[in-house]
Nucleic acid binder design. Sequence first.
RNA 1: GCCGCGGUAGUAUAGCCUGGACCAGUAUGCGGGCCUGUCAAGCCCGUGACCCGGGUUCAAAUCCCGGCCGCGGCGCCA
Length: 439
Amino acid sequence: MLKELFVREAVKRGAELEGQELRLCGWAHRIRDLGAIRFVVLRDRSGTLQVVFKKGETPQEALSAALGLREEAVICVKGVLRRAPTREGFELLGRELEVHSSPLESLPLEVHDSTKATLPTRLRYRWLDVRNPKVSAVFKLKAWVARKFRDHFSALGFTEIFTPKIVATGTESGADVFPVIYFGKTVYLAQSPQFYKQMAVIAGLERVFEVGPVFRAEPHHTTRHLNEYHSLDIEVGFIESYNDVMDFVEGFFRRIAEESHEVKELLEEHGAEPLRVPERVPRVTMRQAYEILAEYGKKVPYGEDLDPEGERLLGNYAREKHKSDLIFVTEYPWKVRPFYTMRKEEEPQWTYGFDLLMRGLEVVTGGQREHRYERLRQNLREKGLKEDDFEYYLEFFKHGAPPHGGAGMGLERITMQLLGLQNIREARLLPRDTERLTP
RNA sequence: GCCGCGGUAGUAUAGCCUGGACCAGUAUGCGGGCCUGUCAAGCCCGUGACCCGGGUUCAAAUCCCGGCCGCGGCGCCA
């Protein structure tokens, strides 16, 4: 029963296919029963089309089969395409109906209205929730972003890498990693490909990217955190400064904006506006950000990190003053950045680390890395970390490491912000959070 | 981790503050019936619920305690 034709194509080629007998397969999306005439809206991954079973026109056998049909049954219909005053402009006059499987119990979610249910219910019955075109749009858009990422950086000479997700130590502090038993030893799920992408640059690949899962053991209770998510990572050798890294990141988001017409329908499903990326995305230092926020009536203590409200306000500032959905915040304080971040030469309390805020939410973190062995050791010590724990990492830098930098972008956060989703869990097919492990 | 809010039919909710007229209302779904052009189809009939345990009280969906679960704000971060 391999499908030869999807609903959308049938409608698109309606003028040509009119009067022909077609076979379409999918789910019974809506059923409207008027007695001697029964409408079944057929839905597949591409769209919907009304099928009509009508006494006098539909053979008795198909008519009877249509009478017992339930919503969300999986069906194939053979029928004749004809013009009709429906949304699609066409309908299929049913001639034969095959029912491949039918719901055994009343549905815990109404597919066409699944987003009206609460998120826990939707996630519990995700296979029903995602049948809703508005929900599948999220995953189609997410896939598009990931594909753009691969296309964009591949074209710029980056090599895609695939690094281990089972690691011996945490990347940053080791406090927020999941331990796993590995042949009797306690090891961890990778919280980031950070060390390995740096190694790949040092290994002479120079420019690398990775799309892969990362794991964070923080017990978050927010709408923007997941314990498992996908990170879009890049790392570039031979940079002049961290501005080069920001240029790469900016170029990627500009591409997303410029090519958003490709996903126009997916955005429209959510009433989302295409991303606005101006000629030059604003780049403000943390110290400038404090001043901007002061003007917005928000006081952030000097030398401290931004809180979510501060990020939202900076997002407003970017939108109002620069007509931009994006804003870089640069020169983060050393005290809030990881040990591998390069510090400003003349002001070591600040770093060459940046974040990118998208519509007021942090979606990218990046910066220039410290590539000098002795400085790295010094940084480790200042962070109160044990050099022994990072011995294998430090070794990367012993045999010739170019100046380099990179960034990590949260795929779900980007998806969420592009569509205006209320909860990041919506951007994950099966989210993992503190309690949720099934399905 | 800290703090706050919540748990009522398949689903989404009202009722809780101010205990009794609530054998729990509404919408939708589901089952049945009517209808030959519906498209949020309509109309009629039916179906189905107070998270678990303990306590207070003549009386608990409602008040109190514990547990489990869910949601959110902050922290941390992408």
